[in-house]
Nucleic acid binder design. Structure first.
Lengths: 97, 97
DNA sequence: GTAATATGCAACCTGGAGGTTGCAACTATG
DNA sequence: CATAGTTGCAACCTCCAGGTTGCATATTAC
């Protein structure tokens, strides 16, 4: 269930899109080492998770990064690290005392 | 390459072991929904990554959590979240301005 | 010694993620 | 309209993590 960014190809897609400009599937394929179909699949996954938005524009389909979930991810990491701090101090207390 | 805690079984193993007491494979299997062999494999993986330590004790093999990598993980999360803060402000600047 | 317990080892099965290929459909351009 | 470019759809392939089963090995209990 590596649902999102565990994959290298997918991560590089997000990295490319984090440039801020909207890219077509063909463009995104150009800089990748896999088939257009593979890219297309990944984009669909990323879109279904909400990390990315795609919209038709003429005969091509332009994708852009959706910053909202990124911000959520930031908050999440913040909360998680806070929990970790607590968990770690508990663990330390348990082990080092 | 879901190397460590992405898996449910493995995560629950760590959770159980975070109780602090050393557990045999049989004990760990008792509370799990999979075979002893599966548990054994998971423990070997966790051991190879350094999250867990196992040592023979008579005819059984007792496993305990190794807190050190957990602490490292905490530090790591801290650093990552810091990087995220920076990345997010850059992203925000890019999008919201 | 013998039986029961706890583990190790090895072969095998399975589902799904990541890729590819081939073809059909739509759009722009001349 | 014909043609080239961009995408969608579907079938197929391969690899491997997670599991299972069966048997061998060690250790304790009797």
């Amino acid at each position: 269930m590596c649902a999102a960014l565990g994959d290298e190809t997918r991560l590089s897609l997000v990295a490319t899109l984090s440039g801020g400009e909207r890219r077509s599937i063909a463009e995104l394929t150009a800089t990748a080492r896999v088939t257009r179909q593979a890219i297309s699949k990944h984009l669909r996954v990323l879109e279904s998770v909400g990390l990315v938005r795609g919209a038709r524009a003429g005969r091509e389909r332009l994708f852009e990064l959706d910053p909202a979930p990124m911000r959520e991810l930031g908050d999440y990491l913040g909360r998680v690290s806070a929990q970790w701090d607590q968990a770690l101090s508990r663990l330390k207390a348990l082990v080092e005392d």
